[in-house]
Amino acid sequence: MGEVKMTEERSGREAGRAKQWRRKNLGRLKPDPVIEAYKKHIDRTLIRENLRLTVEQRIEELMKLQQFAEEVRRAGREAERP
């Protein structure tokens, strides 16, 4: 009896997991080994930090970064001048 209950519980858990898996993976593209290789070199801590921001803050940060990159480029051009 206990075994039957356990089996039912297990099959219930498995069905739940299968449902979760289907919801997560159905229609999703298969992992690409090249992309998987690229993932190893990405800093997840920066992603986590960014996910704490609001969408508006993320775009504001992008503009600041763009401004900074522009400034560095300008300085580089200036330094190259004889």
Binding site: V34, I35, E36, K39, H41, I42, I47
Partner: peptide, 11 residues
């Protein structure tokens, strides 16, 4: 785009 895709998948 490969690195960008990798980052999006990590997100």
């Amino acid at each position: 785009d490969l690195e960008a895709i990798a980052e999006l998948e990590l997100i």
